[in-house]
Amino acid sequence: MALFGTIVNGICIIAGSLIGLFFTKIPERYKETVMHGIGLAVILIGLQMALSTEAIIVVLLSLLTGAIIGEFIHLEEGINRAGDWIGSKFATTNDNISVAQGFITASLVFVIGALSVIGALDGGLRGDHEVLITKGVIDGFVALVLTTTLGFGVILSVVPVFLYQGSIALLATQITNWIPESFLDGLIGELTAVGGLLIMAIGLNLLKIVQIRVGNLLPSILTVGGVYYVYLLF
């Protein structure tokens, strides 16, 4: 079953988020310190991922093109509106944190990275779900911690996780017919690097060092494929 690992990953995120909802009624100073800890950890995760690049120009051009697209279509505003609408349908545990912030933060942390891609490919190509199950356990604990400070929006990240990893797993049996293995390996590295920088941006936002419109940078995750292809042509 190609989707088994993805399903387990999603269940772990939901379970961790639900448990985290019970730990939101803690003093504000605890939440603030925990948020700072999460922000620092998120920056470290992003930095480790960002260093996987072997072509910084690909990362730069992907971010630039993604930013232009995101700003042009006002992607972050749309995400915030969707988050506010969802928030109006569900009671939030922390009025100071929007559903959209929790959704974007958790989605980036859970979706972007080599584990998501490699795990989904292993599940689809070889029926080996060990990577995604391991990732699911990690994501479950991270979801628990994130939910205590970011609230209900974290649990919604299970949707992009399932769609992203599930799509890769289902297409994995044919992907090697379309994309050479050498190209795929390089693309995963650059995609991981771009995603790492976006995760670092999330960490900076959590620490309130700067407010980066991360939502408007999200298209760079898609443009990296085209940029990397053009890069190899030269």
Rank of each mutant, 00 (worst) to 15 (best):
L3T: 05
F4K: 07
T6F: 04
I7N: 03
I7V: 14
I7Q: 08
I7R: 06
V8C: 09
V8R: 03
N9C: 13
G10C: 13
I13H: 03
G20E: 00
T24E: 10
K25V: 15
R29W: 07
Y30S: 14
Y30A: 15
K31Y: 02
G37M: 10
G37Y: 02
V42M: 00
I43Y: 00
L51Y: 02
L51F: 06
L61C: 07
L61H: 00
L63G: 09
I68C: 07
F72Q: 02
I73N: 06
H74V: 10
H74D: 08
L75S: 07
L75T: 12
E76G: 11
G78C: 10
G78S: 12
F90E: 12
A91T: 10
A91G: 09
G102I: 02
S107N: 07
V111E: 07
I112M: 13
A114F: 07
L115G: 11
S116L: 05
V117I: 15
V117R: 02
I118S: 05
I118D: 04
G123M: 11
G123F: 08
I133T: 00
G136R: 08
V137Y: 04
I138T: 03
I138Y: 01
I138P: 00
D139G: 08
D139S: 14
F141C: 13
L144T: 04
L146N: 15
T148M: 14
T149E: 01
G153P: 05
L156A: 00
V158I: 15
V158L: 07
V161L: 14
S167H: 15
I168D: 05
A169H: 01
L170V: 05
L171S: 05
L171I: 03
L171H: 07
Q174R: 14
Q174D: 13
T176V: 14
S182Q: 12
L184R: 09
L191I: 06
A201L: 09
L207D: 09
L207K: 08
K208P: 05
G215K: 01
I221K: 08
L222P: 04
G225P: 01
V227N: 03
Y229V: 12
L232V: 02
L232N: 12
L233P: 01
L233C: 03
F234C: 11
F234P: 09
